[in-house]
Nucleic acid binder design. Sequence first.
RNA 1: GUGGAUGUAGUUCAGUUGGUUAGAAUGCUAGAUUGUGAUUCUGGAGGUCGCGGGUUCGAGCCCCGUCAUUCACCCCA
Length: 455
Amino acid sequence: MEKPSLPKGTRDFGPVVMAKRQFILDSIKKVFQKYGFQPLETPTMENLTTLTGKYGEEGDQLLFKILNSGDFLKDVDLQKLNSRDSRLITHSISEKGLRYDLTVPFARYVVMNRHEIALPFKRYQIQPVWRADRPQKGRYREFYQCDADVVGTDSLICEAEIILMIKEVFKSLKISDYTVKVNHRGVLSGLAEIVGAKEKETALFIAIDKLDKIGEEKVKEELRSKGFDDKSLDVVFEILNKEGSTATKIELLTNSFSTSEKGKKGIADLSAVFQSVKDYGVSEDHVEFDISLARGLSYYTGCIFEVKINNVAIGSVSGGGRYDNLTQAFGAKERLSGVGISFGVDRLFDAMEELKLFPEETQVSSMVLITHFDSESQRYGLKVLQTLRNNNIAAEIYPDPIKIQKQLDYANKKMIPYVIVIGSEEMKSGLLAFKNMKTGEQTKIGIEDILNTLK
RNA sequence: GUGGAUGUAGUUCAGUUGGUUAGAAUGCUAGAUUGUGAUUCUGGAGGUCGCGGGUUCGAGCCCCGUCAUUCACCCCA
């Protein structure tokens, strides 16, 4: 007999974990709805052509591909098959793949349904995604993303609202020590332009993105190996090391980027976004303009966001940005700009678990368990149970006539906070033994009083 | 894809230079208690020591392989 097991990087979520996950999911969903986003779900699998080429070369390798049904080898070119190079035959044996994120399926949906979508279109989407990555801490092969995107407007108010939503989500999750890092692709391009490294842009971005992780010296080392000379490194780090408030940084960088159109646009956008946040009457706490923030996904073109929880060794728990050309990849003729944010539930979960931030109530299933000494009192309890439920109180009765210890033990394990004990005395007097499982306190009161306590 | 670490009851871990029948804590379970749980006491179940091979009179321990888990790199939620 084979021992059962799970595929690498996947997990079961038992009731205790689910209660906590629901708490996170509900908090995020509520915020999305409050900001006017509407739900969307897309299929687990997409045509491979929809997915490939959207995430860069690395991303394509991380796609889970689905083997064609039926006799999938029948029409494969024999020569390619014999070459034993699987890359040559992938496209002929697999035409579907599991979704890698929620943004690309969303873009596909928008293009396919353009005629019935009212622009600007705001949708949220909460579904699992799959990546054929090697799992490690905070990295899974199956995980949930919670996305909210707006397409069909260039307005920077959307960027500001993304910041507001992040702040609301973290507030309702009671995560207080976090940083929303904001940057702009234009600022990064400007930086590359200034040092005359337009064609080495990507190498520059990848290197400086690691700044807070590996430090200035290591980044310089990496850049030197990519062919950057000391003079341009000085220029780059003079800009990266600018200190001060967001406003100060913006002011200083306006001068630095006076020769770069892209850089100027980036600074202007960022400045407008921060101004909007102020206009909403929201403080800039937790929000930081970070010039070294790059983010990998190649489709971003404007503002980019990333959220880190401080003092927890886990990657970013949320990220997003603006993308101008995503729908064009699907043949859309009109230019549709989109901007969005994605929360990683699994990492939020890990971080909150580590910080012990889950409220105890999230684990409560039923509020009340009705226990009984015999089948007669159990029968009496059914009416009581129904009364509780009619008053919208989650309640259950122990289904078997067993000793009271077992029943109380069950309440303990399920973390049910209150127990009603019914026996001959209770049936005679109509006053029920009402026990608080946490304090051990027990009183004999009528059902009306019980309802009042629980409401 | 590259490199490192770890695999022993359900779980967390002990296990001496290789030596008879592999232990603890916790959890599970039954009772002490015929109307009361989480703190008490007593009993019980539970392990092909990841798997395969090798060295040896003898392997949980040493060697090789393999699988799984995990951490880091790359990249990312």
